[in-house]
Simulated scan of single mutants.
Amino acid sequence: MTIPHGSPTPTEEAAGLPEFLAAVVRPGDRVLQIGPGTAAVQLAQRARRVVSVHSTLADVEAVRASLGPRGRSADAVDAQVGDLFEGRPDAAPYDLVVVTAGVRGISPRWLDQLAPGGVVVAPIALGGLHPWVLVGPHARDGLLYGRVLAVDPSDAGPPPADGQLYVTRPAPAEPAEPPAATTAPLWLGPLSPRFKPERYVDLWAWLAGQDDRFTVAGLDIAGPEPGCALVVGTSAVYVRPDGIWMSDAEPVTITLTDIVSDYVRRWLIQRQPEADEMTCRVDRPPTAGPDELFVAAGWTTARPVNLPR
């Protein structure tokens, strides 16, 4: 599912839960909400017990204000300031952890605080997008997998910096600056007669899942909206709804153009899979320590994943 621009997200004060998230919450759930916004208030309308952890007192006060007098007196949400990486071990275990900040990966603390069969829903950085990914153990092998629930293109922005867990939402993130073009960017033509512009975010997510050199990139000459580009050194090939652009006519850039064109053809041949058909493995890198994030890798549309919910 791709969410159109301007659609509600869980970090908007007045918004109800989006459909993809509401479908994950069960009436008896014990829920931990992590990050900015007042999603905990909407979660409390569906779940049995909701606690939340925020990085600032202002975020906690926003939750309490949204509860109103009746919600505060009923202790509908237990909101506290704390370390987002650490979660809330004092109230664990949880059936569902909902993260409302774009993250590079999944904190091992969140996984430690899950009840058996519990899952995490988080917007995980992927090529400048932050698709909402449901992460949990596979029914067959018990290993962690993720499947995309939805993608909101308005969340496009650079991933958290190295050493950071998350990017604050819903403040818009500026697209990363691609390599400076030595000449005006060159338009190479449309993607394909079969391509529909409304499928652009699906293509973007798929490209980023195939090659981690794709990133968010602005291209003023093609419009104000951020898009994606394959970037290597000082060369960039931009994939936009109106077609493919390249930063210059240098040999390395032309080679990258051939790579990008081949990726686009593969997506079209595979019948233009949607972002919510994508799944991934979620694990620590081989050399990671016990406190490092579980990251998403091996993105594909060819692996069905049977998660707890």
Rank of each mutant, 00 (worst) to 15 (best):
A79R: 02
G128L: 07
S52R: 07
A122H: 02
R49V: 15
G227L: 05
L219Q: 04
V97T: 08
A288S: 05
Q270N: 13
T11P: 08
K196S: 12
H54Y: 11
T2D: 13
Q45H: 15
A74H: 05
R303S: 03
T255C: 09
P197E: 11
L126G: 03
W206N: 03
R72E: 13
V50S: 04
P93M: 10
G28P: 02
K196I: 11
E250S: 14
L32W: 07
W206I: 00
P27F: 12
G218A: 11
V25M: 06
R309T: 12
Q272V: 02
G102I: 09
W204F: 11
V121R: 01
W267N: 00
G289V: 10
L165H: 04
A180E: 15
R46K: 12
V252R: 15
G157P: 00
A14W: 14
V216M: 07
R104D: 10
A23N: 07
A74T: 05
T56C: 06
R213M: 08
I221A: 15
G105F: 04
D212Y: 14
A79P: 02
V216C: 05
A288N: 03
G289Y: 09
V63E: 05
R72L: 12
A79E: 00
M246V: 07
A217V: 08
V295H: 00
R147H: 12
P241Q: 01
S247D: 02
F214G: 01
A208S: 06
A23E: 12
T38H: 02
R109C: 14
Q113N: 08
V237I: 01
P308T: 06
L186F: 07
P175H: 12
I34C: 05
A115E: 10
R140T: 15
L207S: 01
V264F: 04
V77T: 00
D90A: 09
R104E: 09
D211V: 04
V148M: 09
V31F: 10
Q113Y: 11
T183K: 04
Q272G: 08
S107Y: 10
F294T: 01
D242I: 11
P175V: 04
D78M: 10
G298W: 09
W206R: 02
Q164K: 10
D248L: 03
V50Q: 05
L111T: 13
M246S: 06
A115N: 11
V305Y: 07
A176M: 12
P193V: 01
E174Q: 15
D248S: 06
C228E: 11
E86V: 08
G227M: 06
L149V: 05
G128D: 06
T234H: 15
Q80V: 08
A139K: 14
A139V: 13
G233F: 09
R72V: 13
S7H: 13
W110M: 05
L17I: 03
V98H: 09
T215D: 09
P285D: 10
Y94R: 01
V98K: 01
A161N: 08
P290K: 00
I3E: 15
D291W: 12
P36R: 01
R49I: 15
L129P: 06
V135W: 06
V239D: 00
R49H: 14
D212F: 13
P197S: 07
L230A: 04
T253C: 05
R199P: 03
A44S: 10
S7F: 13
P172D: 07
L186A: 05
Q33C: 14
R30P: 02
A62P: 07
D220F: 13
G146A: 06
R240V: 05
S52D: 04
Y200T: 02
P137T: 15
R281F: 14
L57P: 12
A217H: 10
G127W: 06
